[in-house]
């Protein structure tokens, strides 16, 4: 081997070492960003957390106040979204898994996937024109509906995937006993896929709990505890947005504290789901 061959080899090995190290650097960097974001939220958020903060309503700047009404509002609208979105989404997922091997099923699948990718603010505009304008005001109902629309395609696709994991032999066993299709689905397939579907549902709930854009002009915001769905309703995310973009230091601090609460909730759901499923979540 000549001189040039060894230079060539050295260059080759150099590129190999450089590039393989760079990929590791990419991974380390990204995890560092995650740690930086979470760490910052933890440090900034913890100092403002207190019982009063979690239960009070907003007060004029400098007089304390809290996010109790926002927590309640987020809970109500997320529950409403789950109440509408889960049954529709799961039923649609059952259709796709059990009857969806045709052009209609393919169309639904395609439309659902693209709907998942539609910016959530578009859903906000849609609900605004459809519900808020006729009603004449923003409301918790409109906010919950917007979140439900976001949930439906996500839940439908995870449900389909989970039902697809149920072994075919289970179905055949029941069908061979003369059970009608709906009983097989209801009594055999759904229970077998239940934990997977629940997992998907939890992730969808975590996802919409963090949504802000579709609530901005559907639920708007409110300074008070509100239990009525036809009134404007506060949410954690919109409150964080308002506090963060305002001029006051004390409000920024409250934004960090509210974020700590929100992110903890969402991460706990994600980690629990991960813990309970060995699958790809």
């Amino acid at each position: 081997m000549s001189e040039t061959a060894t230079t060539f080899e050295r260059k080759r090995r150099g590129i190999n070492l450089l590039m393989t190290s760079l990929t590791a650097v990419c991974a380390v960097f990204t995890i560092a960003v995650l740690v930086a974001i979470l760490g910052y939220i933890g440090v900034r958020g913890i100092s403002s957390l207190s019982i009063e903060f979690l239960t009070d309503t907003p007060k004029p700047v400098g007089e304390g106040g809290g996010i109790g009404n926002s927590i309640l509002g987020s809970a109500i609208m997320t529950l409403l979204a789950a109440f509408i979105g889960l049954p529709v989404g799961i039923a649609a997922g059952v259709y796709l898994a059990e009857f969806g091997k045709n052009w209609f099923g393919n169309t639904v699948r395609f439309v659902a996937d693209t709907l998942i990718g539609v910016p959530s603010i578009i859903i906000g505009i849609f609900v605004y024109t459809l519900v808020v304008l006729p009603m004449g005001r923003q409301s918790g109902f409109a906010g919950g509906l917007a979140l439900a629309i976001i949930m439906i395609p996500i839940v439908a696709r995870t449900t389909e995937e989970m039902i697809g994991l149920v072994p075919h032999s289970m179905r055949e066993g029941a069908l061979a006993l003369g059970a009608p299709q709906w009983r097989v689905t209801w009594n055999i397939v759904l229970p077998a896929a239940a934990s997977g579907i629940a997992t998907g549902a939890m992730l969808a709930i975590a996802r919409v709990t963090g949504e802000t854009a579709p609530l901005l002009f559907t639920a708007l915001n409110s300074r008070f505890y509100n239990y009525y769905l036809d009134q404007p309703m506060s949410s954690l995310t919109v409150q964080i947005f308002n506090y963060a973009t305002g001029p006051f230091e004390v409000e920024h601090a409250m934004a960090w504290a509210a974020t700590l609460l929100l992110v903890t909730l969402i991460l706990v759901i994600n980690i629990l789901v991960r813990f309970f499923t060995r699958k790809r979540f």
């Binding site: 963090g210 854009a213 964080i240 963060a244 974020t259 929100l262 969402i266 994600n270």
Partner: peptide, 11 residues
């Protein structure tokens, strides 16, 4: 890395 995707936009 997937957790990064779970963090809400407003955060």
């Amino acid at each position: 890395v997937e957790l990064l995707a779970a963090i809400p936009s407003v955060v």
